[in-house]
Design a protein around this nucleic acid. Structure first.
Lengths: 368, 368
DNA sequence: ACATCATGCAGAATCGTGCCTCCCCCTCTT
DNA sequence: AAGAGGGGGAGGCACGATTCTGCATGATGT
């Protein structure tokens, strides 16, 4: 007792943040009691519990996240990464799809007590290995590529990985969520046909990801089923101008289509501009649908029908599956979840704007 | 040696990830040597260093981020939060400004070995206190509100906070970055005047943030300086439809302006639609400028002149200031940095599209 | 009245690294 | 030959929390 301010350990600094020891000393209880009181764990009378809480509040005590993570093995952090196309180092919010998906995922994670960490797709970004420098409970990967080394490494370390988009090849993931691209394309092409399209073209990037592959295959299958020759133009996806050129090329063909589906976000405006150049009226001479989450297509001239992949719903589902895997809530084994899409019918895909007595094409009901 | 695989401590599990102890045992050296070899810290011959590194690689050793953070006090994590307007719980990527700013900040942080954690603006999101559950080295706050409790708490804890946008009131921050809004508005109004505008109107939300306040004040000052009566319409910013109504109201006034500056991103399309309703041709009857980062204004009919706040540059600067503060690189004391804007002149703000011999209005040169 | 039990709390062992301290041994100097 | 000096590496404490174990004490059962 003659020692100057010596507790169990002689290190209660004045300037430093209050630790659990300081709270214990100030409340006149042990460290165990403080921990139990704050976490609602042990068997303590309410009096002690509220007393400890009051003291902790008074001292402005904040538990050290690092110490808790080290002890419990759970950080409350979830990695989020987007596979980059082309050369751009970081295309995080390039497309409206990614932005909305990330927004929904962030919100859903926060609702369950987790926070998202934005990480690069490549393992070694600028000589640091960021991935092993942050303690992750799990990771969300948007559009993983074949044999993604980061995903492989994470899974090998026992960290759950849930991907948005079917994993290509034999990439092992804990679970994945994807749209039903076949159904989406078939429904959309049927919608074209109902509007009187005789020859439907496809505009797509030369990407090898599953979205492009599945959609293209579905288009070709549909063509074979109804007996139409495919009319496809593709372009290198990383070139920002190539899309406009390909749209032009598509409308310049001798077998010019009377309806076009654009697989990527900017295709809508590109196709609209190309149609204008060739003097084609939309929708009278050319029907148009584009896969996009952008709201600009509601106010183009004319408004363009879009296929929405519902990224918000995907983001929520991905986070739910991942947190279930982290907390062991869900059942084991890989989980695959296929989600419906939403065709937002606007002027550009309806030949006669509801002037006849014939029932107009039904738009799929929008749930949620 | 007769003991079954007993190191200094008798706990080398088989299933668990390899720790630094396992590496030390496998390499036949001490823990200190492993730590020094991997971090390049001590005085070791290259032979030992490479040997330890090889063993670590072979065992797939990954240092525990939690333990390192606990020991060093640095996590390599930076919080990112956007003050939410209105009732939306999470407006992370709502405007193109936020999306681009976040993208640039993320990229800049990764370049310096830090990762960004997306966090909510409110301290208690869904009964968890996420903010104190993650170890942050610093935080970026976009558009902090008056007396932001999160910012105050962080600064009190000694965690550096850099804000995008001047902090309102007496909010203490480590540093802030903002555009030179007065100069931006003055330059833009001068550009209007050069294009022949006689009465310039302002469309703005009724927000109390500094951006709105500074811009409005600059507008009023400019009006007083040139002797024009202000023509202002404002609307509740959280209502998505109110902007269109206010745009309509502005053009319906008896003192209808012949040029309008819209302070918020959607104002451009709203004003364009309103002009169309009143049969006003842009730019012949009405000049238009809108503050926006969206690329859609390059392809509207006609293309609309926009004021870009250069969010990418802001994001880079914010991260640089923050990391300097974290690492003690910069000098002490609060740092305030004012950045220029960029007026992207398009058809909507030029009365005569360069058909006369008079020199057209000069566009400010775009540096960076 | 004595054994039993639930209650309320304290001690101490971790979690995995980083780093400060110290020790050993080899070599060079005079 | 003995002390000085420095390179190379081992020992062990501390970071701040969680949690298992265990000891008092008063209440209760038979």
């Amino acid at each position: 007792m003659s020692q100057p301010s010596a507790g169990t350990h002689p290190r209660s600094r004045v300037g430093a943040r209050a630790g659990i020891r300081d709270v214990a000393a100030a409340a006149g209880v042990s460290i165990t009691t403080v921990s139990d009181a704050l976490n609602g764990k042990g068997r303590l009378p309410d009096a002690t519990r509220s007393h400890v809480r009051a003291v902790a509040e008074r001292l402005g005590y904040r538990p050290s996240a690092a110490a808790r993570t080290l002890r419990t093995g759970k950080s409350g952090l979830i990695g989020l990464t987007v596979t980059t196309y082309g050369e751009e180092p970081f295309t995080f919010t390039e497309f409206a799809y990614f932005a909305e998906m990330a927004r929904a995922a962030t919100s859903a994670a926060l609702d369950r007590g987790y926070a998202l960490v934005i990480l690069p797709a490549t393992s070694r970004h600028s000589a640091f290995d960021i991935w092993s420098n942050v303690a992750l409970d799990g990771t969300v990967v948007i559009d993983p590529s074949d044999q993604d080394p980061v995903v492989t490494e994470l899974m090998r370390s026992g960290i759950p990985v849930v991907s948005d988009g079917r994993p290509a090849g034999s990439l092992p993931v804990t679970a994945w969520v994807d749209n039903d691209h076949e159904a989406a394309v078939c429904g959309l092409l049927d919608h074209f046909a109902e509007s009187g399209a005789r020859r439907i073209g496809l505009l797509t990037g030369t990407s090898t990801d599953t979205y492009t592959r599945l959609s293209t295959t579905a288009y070709l299958d549909w063509c074979e089923r109804v007996g139409q020759d495919p009319v496809v133009e593709s372009y290198p996806a990383h070139d920002p101008c190539a899309g406009a050129v390909a749209a032009d090329r598509l409308l310049a063909r001798p077998d010019r289509p009377d309806a076009v589906y654009g697989l990527f976000d900017p295709n809508g405006t590109d196709l609209l501009a190309a149609a204008r150049r060739y003097g084609l009226r939309v929708p009278d001479d050319l029907l148009l649908v584009c896969c996009s989450e952008s709201t600009v297509y509601a106010s183009t001239e004319p408004p363009i029908t879009t296929l929405s992949l519902k990224p918000g719903r995907i983001g929520n589902t991905v986070i739910d599956l991942l947190i279930n895997a982290i907390e062991g809530t869900g059942r084991g084994g890989p989980v695959e979840q296929v989600m419906p899409t939403d065709l937002i019918v606007r002027t550009s895909s309806q030949r006669r704007p509801a002037r006849t007595t014939v029932s107009p094409p039904r738009s799929p009901r929008a749930d949620e």
